[in-house]
Amino acid sequence: MSDAFWQSVDLSTFWEYRQVLLAGLWFNVYVFACSATVALAVGLAAALLRVNRSWPFRWIGTVHVELFRNAPDYIMVVWVHFVLPLLLGALIGRRLEIHPFVSAVIALGFVYSGYFAETFRAGIQAIPVGHVEAARACGMADRLILRRIILPQVVRRMLPEAVNQFVSLFKATTIVSLIAVPDLMYQVSMVIATEMRPLPLYTGAALTYFAVIYFVATGVRLLSERWRNKIYA
């Protein structure tokens, strides 16, 4: 085996910097948690627009979905961080700056809201209209029906698909190092700059991401399966 091979699998340097790197990984988790919240909230709002009875609402929802689903997350992160403050600043006539963490959350949150909107929409449309009529016939108001009858079923139905999107979103958090959010990749680059040993550090980062995503996603799938499947015969 060549030296390069052994170098790339010798993770001692990675382990040596574990504290700095772990702090970086936590940043990935923070960015993930915040942008997932934004994506879910905005995605649900967009989905409700998409299934609205009146066309102007549906149209706004569709524009939202197509705009963000078709925007590369890399470009969006850069655009929100560098271009958006210039545009907003020009509008209000003041210099604006957005904190890198906030830019990352907005960019990823909105890009993924496009995907979540479609998942929510498919989930909502899969609910038989009879379930809603039965609730109406009992005198339930629309908001109550959404909260008690529709969403609990939608969540169960969309969970497998949503887990895949959460995985993509978590992977996408690795690009926030571009705008200097101190995540794992950012810390890895910093360590590489001092240690000059990119192979083991990149390998370590890859393995870490893989392990985190694999175990969390598998755990969520396993734990939610029984709960989800109660609704099916």
Binding site: H131, A134, R136, A137, G139, Q153, R156, I231
Partner: peptide, 17 residues
């Protein structure tokens, strides 16, 4: 007013969750 009328549907329409 709807509370004054109980409705039973052909497709049962129970809430599965």
């Amino acid at each position: 007013m709807r509370r004054e009328l109980g409705m039973v549907f052909q497709q049962f329409n129970l809430w599965p969750h």
